[in-house]
Design a protein around this nucleic acid. Structure first.
Length: 236
DNA sequence: GACCAGGCACATC
DNA sequence: GATGTGCATGGT
């Protein structure tokens, strides 16, 4: 039986590359430089990547502010903090029991592997070692791992999120059934392997994503197209 | 009051 | 390997 069909070729395609660069150029003109991901340092970026799981960024910002106010800004501080204090700080980002556990396991990973306790050395691991290692951390799935690799370690791993999938399928570039890895591979096969390009591209998808109604939210104030989910804003 | 938001792990079939 | 479910808050 042949593999299930999906919209993405597993090989480089000049047409796909041209289309992707066209999309990038259009979004770039429309939204400008995004200066993404927000965070004072790589560790804060990694923390944000865990906290934003299935949460609105607005609420993540509150939790990060709480962590800062309590001095919980390093893996050591979080690992040693009283659990109740950590839970209280994370509360606004939702799923706080789960996220505390995930944050602690990520901190343990940094503390175990950072030379001399210095977590930035882990972020200097080659991509081929860093990404699989992150995926082994309980609570770190593909999207969270790629956010840490791309935005904290500044290495080229393309982040596929809900906005990316929504925009691709809304414009007929995907059928919505592709796996995370298939989607990531499609971008990486067809784009120049450049950290800054991956960074901006994902950030532009996030910016544009707010203009697309979600499947179960057929009307939204930013989308100019009313309630027809088959249509999409003329952004890409 | 219902629905949604930048996932992930685990159980079950 | 596909599918369903729990996790929880704050904004609209």
């Amino acid at each position: 039986m042949p593999p299930k069909a999906n919209a993405f070729s597993r090989a480089f395609s000049p047409r796909a590359r041209a289309r992707l660069l066209e999309i990038y150029a259009k979004l770039s003109r429309r939204f400008g430089e995004r200066h993404w991901w927000p965070g004072d340092n790589p560790f804060e970026v990694a923390v944000g990547a865990v906290l934003t799981q299935n949460a609105a960024w607005r609420n993540v910002e509150k939790a990060i502010a709480n962590l800062k106010a309590r001095g919980l800004v390093t893996p050591e501080a979080i690992a040693e903090a009283p659990l109740g204090e950590l839970l209280e700080a994370l509360r606004p980002s939702g799923y706080y029991n789960v996220k505390a556990r995930r944050l602690l396991s990520l901190c343990a990973f940094f503390l175990k592997n950072g030379e001399g306790g210095l977590y930035p050395s882990v972020l200097g691991w080659p991509l081929a070692k860093l990404r699989p290692a992150l995926l082994e951390v309980p609570g770190v799935g593909p999207e969270t791992a790629d956010c840490v690799v791309l935005y904290a370690a500044r290495q080229p791993s393309f982040v596929v999120d809900a906005y990316t999938k929504r925009i691709l399928s809304r414009h007929g570039l995907a059928n919505g059934e592709e796996s995370y890895e298939e989607t990531r591979a499609w971008f990486e096969l067809n784009l120049p392997r450049q950290t800054q390009l991956y960074n901006e591209f994902h950030a532009l998808f996030v910016a544009a994503g707010h203009y697309y109604c979600s499947p179960r939210k057929p009307k939204c104030e930013l989308c100019p197209l009313g309630d027809d989910p088959r249509r999409a804003p003329d952004l890409i």
